[in-house]
Amino acid sequence: GDKHARPSRRYHGQKPGSKDLIEETSDIEDLLKKEEDYKEENNYSTETSGAVKWKEDLSRKAAEAFLRQQQAAPNLRKLVYGTVTEDAEDDDRDGQEELGGLFHIRQPDGGCKYKADALDCSRFPVQAPHNWDLEEVMNSIRDCFVTGEWEEDKDAAKILAKDDE
């Protein structure tokens, strides 16, 4: 991930101890702490209570969803800003390759080479279209419509009535 690291290093250099970074780091630490706490809780319940089967499954599912979210979030951040704030320092050390102690190897900025002269367009084309003739694909967006299922805390009739006014 060296090529992604470059912009952030610059950021680091310009603004040591910037507010954003500190906030971010503490955010991530908080999340990690929560994650640890969660696991412990999970073990506790399965060992002692001998709870009903579906409950066990539920907590496992929740834990998996949580982990998935944890993994996805830093990746997205890395994709956008070049690096996750945590491992920025590690990247500082490597990536400084030298040839004969004189020339630095120039690394292309995060994949910029192929897109630097590409079409400047805000449209976001669909990469892998779904087959909207399939019932299950159609069902995947059913609840985006007023005709679909409503969350319990929302009274469909009330919202729609208010809308007509």
């Binding site: 912009p7 603004k15 910037s18 954003d20 955010d27 998935r68 979210q69 951040r77 976001f124 609840d143």
Partner: peptide, 29 residues
């Protein structure tokens, strides 16, 4: 296009967004 825009917002305005993924889960949305 938006990803590049976010990088530019950081360069021009020193603003970084908090980016959180919200998985769709079981919902049909």
């Amino acid at each position: 296009y938006t990803i590049e825009f976010l990088r530019h917002l950081k360069s021009f305005f020193q603003i970084m967004f908090k980016i959180e993924t919200k998985p769709c889960g079981e919902e049909l949305k």
